[in-house]
């Protein structure tokens, strides 16, 4: 009986110790551009802000908070080395503008080679091509127009050797303007195709 009690006691102790060992670590680090944002860590005990790079909050109880501590860059990066080693680059965005119909502006024509370079450098396999129109004309007409714009960019990319299956085209007609205008307004900045390279 005595041994059983002792066994039960050790079991409880093991469970308790394991429970205590479980913790959540939250570290704020600079992003790839070198900027550091701000985060809050909140639970039943309140909310703590972390604003300096390589500051870390360690929480082991949802009813407790403790002030953030500074931890070295190397120490943090070694804990997260696997996750960081496979971190994808952020997507790259381009906007191409149109004179009219599917005729690109001369500045946008120059951008086309940058798009191809970005696709190759990013190793992109997911490319969104989204067509837009300004508000001149009917909803139907502008939907077709924005679709023709997106299709023309897609066709050009495919002609340059980009795999068709990597490209998704969508058309927003006049519904998603970059610059909000009244109906029937000629706005060059809304006649566009947005390209997102992932």
């Amino acid at each position: 009986m005595h041994t059983l009690l002792r066994l039960a006691f050790s079991l409880v102790l093991i469970v308790l110790l394991n429970g205590c060992a479980k913790k959540t670590m939250v570290a704020l680090v600079p992003d790839p551009d070198g900027k550091t944002g701000r985060i809050t860590v909140a639970n039943q005990a309140g909310s703590t802000a972390i604003e300096s790079p390589y500051n870390v909050a360690i929480i082991s109880d949802k009813n407790k908070q403790s002030p953030p501590v500074h931890m070295g860059k190397e120490a943090i990066e070694s804990i997260f080395s696997d996750a960081l080693s496979i971190q994808p680059k952020r997507p790259i965005h381009f906007i191409l503008y149109f004179e009219k119909d599917i005729v690109l502006t001369s500045d946008s024509i120059k951008l086309m080679t940058d798009i191809l370079t970005a696709i190759k450098e990013q190793g992109a396999t997911d490319i969104s091509v989204v067509g837009h129109a300004d508000t001149v004309g009917s909803k139907e007409l502008n939907f077709t127009l924005s679709k023709n714009r997106a299709d023309s960019i897609r066709d050009w990319l495919v002609e340059k050797g980009i795999n068709l299956s990597y490209i998704n085209t969508t058309s927003h007609g006049k519904e998603n303007p970059l610059i909000k205008t009244e109906d029937n307004v000629n706005e060059p900045r809304n006649r566009r195709v947005e390209v997102v390279i992932r």
């Binding site: 570290a27 900027k35 909140a42």
Partner: peptide
């Protein structure tokens, strides 16, 4: 959301480890 706290983001890069 983590087991013991919720992390609010004001940008940009956060590393989280949950045992």
């Amino acid at each position: 959301e983590t087991p013991y706290a919720t992390v609010g983001m004001r940008g940009t890069h956060v590393l989280i480890k949950v045992d």
